[in-house]
Design a protein around this nucleic acid. Sequence first.
DNA 1: ACAAAAGTGTTGTTACTACACCCATGG
DNA 2: CCATGGGTGTAGTAACAACACTTTTGT
Lengths: 222, 222
Amino acid sequence: MHHPSEQNIKVSADVAVFAIKDGALCVLLIQMKKKPYEAQWAMPGGLIGDAETAADAAARILKDQTGLDGIYLEQLQTFDAPERDALGRVVSVAYMALLPRAAEDLRTTDKYADVRWWPVAKLPALAYDHAHMAATALARLRAKLGYTNIIANLLPASFTLGQLQDAYERVLGQELDKRNFRKKILALGLIEETGRTTAGAAHRPAALYRFRKRGLTYIEIL
Amino acid sequence: MHHPSEQNIKVSADVAVFAIKDGALCVLLIQMKKKPYEAQWAMPGGLIGDAETAADAAARILKDQTGLDGIYLEQLQTFDAPERDALGRVVSVAYMALLPRAAEDLRTTDKYADVRWWPVAKLPALAYDHAHMAATALARLRAKLGYTNIIANLLPASFTLGQLQDAYERVLGQELDKRNFRKKILALGLIEETGRTTAGAAHRPAALYRFRKRGLTYIEIL
DNA sequence: ACAAAAGTGTTGTTACTACACCCATGG
DNA sequence: CCATGGGTGTAGTAACAACACTTTTGT
């Protein structure tokens, strides 16, 4: 079936990067310089190399355009509306990336005007079909909280139950009952105590936990 | 980001078509003629046109290669391993299609040797990465049974509860308790009685039901 | 009469929700 | 001593799993 023929379509990868920053779930956006998208915000993205997987391209592009490296990536969906890019037909394989903390040491190249974290509740107008992409990514992330340990990728290696609950609440956008949350999350057996506790804060120290497996694990959660 | 550059990648659409036939969940495969995939089986697929969405391409290709028309399609995932096609770099946007009955009037073009339904439990060796695609499609279909009314697309407009249960069992590959199944499915409110019943079979007539909405509806099911 | 699928309830168990107070620490 | 987040149990309710017999039709 896939035989050579004339086809004039480019393939790109775009990445929706999420992290929790200042008590809000945020997405990382870059501000563009070139026409026709001058001054507009977009998710990091670019063309895939001929010998490179789309996931490798996403990681490379992310490194180039934002300085981020070695983070969790998963394929989201492919966006292929013929008019989605004003400069020509580009089919984009979208990825979702999760970061354990909102990095502050962002840097971009001089091809872009700025890089910044934006709370998902208050996104600016986005270039291309990136508003649609961001909405899809957020919906996927929320859904996956319900049946995987994906939230591990939004947390540091060890964390308190309070931080874990907070991460769930920030992503879901709703508050959870503390006692029920702890019962359920511990009953799942996805996390275990490290044996260590926090110290130095003006309140009772908290037990630190870690995920037994950090890789994506499918379980019935919330 | 998406600026012109030299990129030599083709974009195709491949379709995993499912139907229930002879009491088994089946996939539709075509047998290839040309090298290097001579005599191997594959899912229908082909290059996307420059001004066509991937979904439109999938529908067009399905019509051409199998004669099927007007069926349910949803995007599955994009497969992009650089070596997945021996003839060059092809990124494939995979779709899942569901058919209310296993059509018998299949026809293909003279570019292919044969078209046939294959039970998912006994697939032949597949060309490209289509074995991986088929497994992904099946996993997605099974998962979506659990939170959508997607099974409506595997059934005719009106059906008995027995047929509905049978469809679930064939897709999931496991038997369900009749009384619990009926209780649950009726409690969901996705289906309603048509008022008509079956007749002519050597057993008690069954009430016929229909889906209230045939479009994809998200609900907590099984 | 028999074969074949349709139809129908109850009980025990498990999971979920709602809800309020004391504890340990730093400042 | 006060502010802050950490930590804990129970009771009522709803959902789930297991399970067997009667009904209606065609042959």
